[in-house]
Amino acid sequence: MSWFKRNQKGIKTPTSQKKDSPNGLWVKSPSGKLIHTKELKSNSYVFPDDGHHQRIGSKEYFEILFDHNEFAEIEEGLIPGDPLKFEDSKPYPDRVVASQKKTNLKEAARSACGKLGGKDIAVCCMDFSFIGGSMGSVVGEKIARTIDYSLERKIPFLMISKSGGARMMEAGFSLMQMAKTSAKLHLLSEAKIPYISLLTDPTTGGVTASFAMLGDFNIAEPKALIGFAGPRVIRETIGKDLPKGFQSSEFVLDHGFIDFIVDRRELKEKLMELFKLLDN
């Protein structure tokens, strides 16, 4: 127990010999729980200690959902235009290019088809890291074409929403994506093909007011922010603080707008169970 006795005061290691642990090896949940990234990944990016669901993107969701991480991407070549020549602090195309470089993504949604528990499925997943997961023409079109894909093959459609809403820089075009996606979902519904809408943190604005709420089955990850108007806007409008837990998955479940909340670690199994029940 000699380490109890401190012979030398302070840390004597010279700075030059200091050993850093590589960046990004450990991550911390909001409640302060530390976990190794490898362990987090093997746990579907959920912190085992407090159940916090880390925000993840399409890459991670595809990895979690598709059997052996095997899938074919649909319409990956769609990239945004600049119909309005929109400019605020910088031109919209510059913003897009910067976001593409930063995220290594082409847009705020990716679509893929593959097998989930041996069954074909078409999935579209939003990436929040790309301009807040905002919905412009490309996101709307990708969703529309993924629905077409699932219509043609008569396979279920899963939409994973994670978005702040419509993309301002595409103004009117962005708004009409709400209409477009709803039109396609109407066709899917007529064809009686199952549509599962998974709402993750956060799902707000025009996304909530269109496809995210239109599932045959609306499901959500725990403690996600789900709502139409953003909490800040509501607070400013009514001029008082919002109740605790307002606009959380649990709140939305309580008010009757989602079917169930699913832990990400059980997501794939739960979907397989649901599909089996629909098939039998």
Partner: peptide
């Protein structure tokens, strides 16, 4: 705009608009 308020969220503002969009196509 649609009203941004606590009760509006409780009663499903997003769902109400979304449903209209889909139903109006039919």
């Amino acid at each position: 705009g649609a009203f941004p308020g606590i009760e509006a969220e409780e009663r499903g503002q997003g769902e109400a608009i979304a449903r209209n969009l889909k139903e109006m196509f039919s």
